[in-house]
Simulated scan of single mutants.
Amino acid sequence: MQKIKLFIYFMLLLNIQIAVSQSVEINGKVVSNVSVENIHVINKTAQVFTTTNKAGEFTITAKLNDTIMFSSIQHIQKTITISNNTILIRKLNVKLEEQINKLDEVVVGKVLTGDLLSDVENVEGDPPINFFDVGIPGYKGKPATQSERRLSEAGEFKPKMLLGLLTGGIPLNPILNGVSGRTKMLKNRVKLEADDELLHNIKVRLSESFFSVYELDESKHIDFFYFCQEDENFNNRCKGKTDIEIFEFLREKLIAYKANLKIVND
C-alpha cells in the first residue's frame, strides 16, 4: 500500500514537472479603470504576441518563467513572470494602472463655475456661427489635405470626356493636367502623405511593443520603419489591419532588414 502511494505521488510530481516545462495556452483578463481593448500582450521570452478584446480577455502560449509584458498608450507598462500556479491553472488576471500625463494648470480668460446662468453672463463676445445655425448643409468628414484639394481641382481625364468634342463642352483642365503628368504627380503625393500618416500611427502604437520583443539598435529604428514603408505591399498589409497583422508584417520586414544589414557589413 505504501509503495502504491509513493508511486502515485511520484507520477503526480512527474506530471506537474512535465506541465511546467512545456508551453501551455493561458487564458487571461486585463482589468483597468479605462478601456481594456487592444492592449498588447507580449511573451518576450517566446516572442509571441496578441491583443486583448473589448472585455480585456486574451489567450497566449507560455511556459514557466516566461516574461509577459502588457503595453498600451493608456496604461503604465507592466511585466509579469509566469509562475508554477499560472501554468497549472492556466489563467492569468492582470490589473493595469492608467497612464496619466499631467500638465501644469493654465487659466485662460474667464473661469467657468458650472452654473449656466452665471457662466453665460461672464462669457464675453458672440458665440461662433456654423453652417447648422443658418440651415446650410456642410461637410462633416475629415478635412482634405492640400495635396487632395489640388488633385480634386486638377480633375482626372476620362475617355468619355472626348464626347465633349462633339458638343464643344470638353473640360480642358483634366486633359492638360493628364498630358503634362501633373495629375499623376498629385496622385503619388496624396498616396505618399497617406502612407506617412499610416507609418506614424504604426510607430506610435507598436514601436515600443515590437522592439521589446525583437531587438534592433535604437539608432536604426527610424530607418527600419522607412524600409517597411517602401515595401509595395505596405498599404495593403497595414491599412485597416489589426495590430497582430501589422506586427507580423513588421516581423517579416525585420528579418529582411537585418539580412540587408548583414550583406552591407560583410
Results as ranks from 00 to 15, higher is better:
Lys239Gln: 08
Ser152Tyr: 11
Lys184Gly: 13
Thr67Asn: 09
His75Glu: 01
Thr45Phe: 00
Val107Lys: 13
Ala62Arg: 03
Asn177Gly: 11
Glu57Gln: 04
Asn33Ala: 12
Pro174Tyr: 02
Phe224Gly: 01
Gln2Glu: 12
Thr113Arg: 00
Tyr226Gln: 01
Gly164Asp: 04
Gly56Lys: 11
Gln99Ala: 08
Ile39Cys: 03
Lys203Arg: 08
Leu88Thr: 01
Phe131Asp: 14
Lys5His: 13
Phe225Glu: 00
Thr145Trp: 10
Met69Ile: 11
Ile222Asp: 07
Asn53Ser: 03
Asp217Glu: 15
Arg90Trp: 01
Ile39Lys: 04
Ser21Thr: 06
Val41Trp: 02
Ala55Lys: 02
Asp66Trp: 07
Gly141Phe: 05
Asp104Lys: 13
Tyr139Leu: 13
Tyr139Asp: 14
Tyr9Phe: 11
Phe249Gly: 01
Cys238Tyr: 06
Ser219Asn: 15
Phe210His: 07
Tyr226Trp: 06
Ile89Cys: 14
Asn38Met: 08
Ile244Tyr: 14
Gly125Thr: 03
Glu124Val: 07
Val94Leu: 09
Thr145Cys: 12
Phe225Tyr: 03
Phe58Ser: 03
Asn235Trp: 15
Ile89Pro: 09
Asn177Ser: 07
Arg150Val: 12
Pro143Lys: 08
Asp104Gln: 13
Gly240Thr: 05
Phe227Gly: 00
Leu64Glu: 03
Ala46His: 02
Gly240His: 06
Arg182Ile: 15
Glu105Ala: 14
Ser71Ile: 07
Ser32Ala: 12
Ile87Gln: 01
Leu112Glu: 06
Glu208Met: 10
Asn65Met: 09
Gln146Ser: 15
Leu12Cys: 13
Val111Phe: 07
Gly240Ser: 12
Phe224Met: 00
Pro137Glu: 10
Tyr226Leu: 01
Gly178Ile: 08
Glu245Pro: 09
Met185His: 14
Pro128Lys: 12
Asn53Lys: 02
Gly114Glu: 00
Val123Leu: 14
Lys142Thr: 11
Gln146Arg: 15
Ser152Val: 14
Glu218Tyr: 14
Glu98Gln: 05
